[in-house]
Amino acid sequence: MEPILETDNLWKIYHIGKVDSPALRGVSLQIMPGEFVAIMGPSGCGKSTLLHVLGGLAQATRGSVLLDGNDLSNMQDAERTQIRRCKVGFVFQRFNLLPTLDVRGNIRLAQHIYGNEFDPHRFEMTTNVLGLSHRLHHRPSELSGGEQQRVAIARAIINEPKILLADEPTGNLDTANSDAVLALLRQLHRDLGQTIMMITHNPEAAAYAGRVIHMRDGLIVDGIPA
C-alpha cells in the first residue's frame, strides 16, 4: 500500500530580517491511508509549521511532500490551493468558523468552494455523525466550544478529504468537550476510515491516535515508522 502522505528531508526556513530561522530541519515521515497519527512536541518545535506545509498552506524550502502522489513542494500557490481544496480538511484550535453563517452555511461553504453541488445525503450523514442535526440554524456565537469544533470537523470532512489535519483541536476546550471531540475523531477514523494527523501537546489526546510521532527542534525524534 502506498502512503497517503510522505515527506523526505523536509525543510522550512523562515527569513526574519537578515536572519534565517529553520522551523523544519529535514523531516521525513510516512502516513498510510486510514492511519490516525498524533504529532507531539513542545511549543516551537515545528509541529504547526509541519502541518501547514503538509496541508499546502505554506511552501517547503527544501525536500519533498507527496500528498496522494502529488508533490506539493514543486507546486505554485494555485496548484497547492487546488490540492488543499480536494484532498485536505483542516481543523484548527480556534475553530475558525465564519461568524456570519449558521452551522448549515459553514458546512455548505466547504462544499461550495470544492465545487460540488449541495449533496443532501452526504450533508445529512455528516451532521448526524457529528450530532449537529438539531443545531443547523444556529450561528457560531450561539454554540458551545465543543459544538463549534464539531462544526469545524463536519466542514473539514464534508468533501471526503484524503487526510484530515487537526491543529490542537482540543486546545480551546474543557475536558468534557475535549473527550467528546477526540472520541469523534476516533469514530471517524474507525467507522469511516478517515486518515487523520493531529497535532497536540496533550499526551491524553495523543493516546486516541494509533501512532504518536515526537518532534523537537524541527526534527522527528521518534515514532517515524508507519
Binding site: T81, Q82, R84, R85, F90, F92, N96, L97
Partner: peptide, 10 residues
C-alpha cells in the same frame, strides 16, 4: 484565511 484553508482560490 479560513476561506483559503478551505481551498478557496484567489
Amino acid at each position: 484565511g479560513v476561506l483559503k484553508s478551505l481551498g478557496a482560490s484567489k
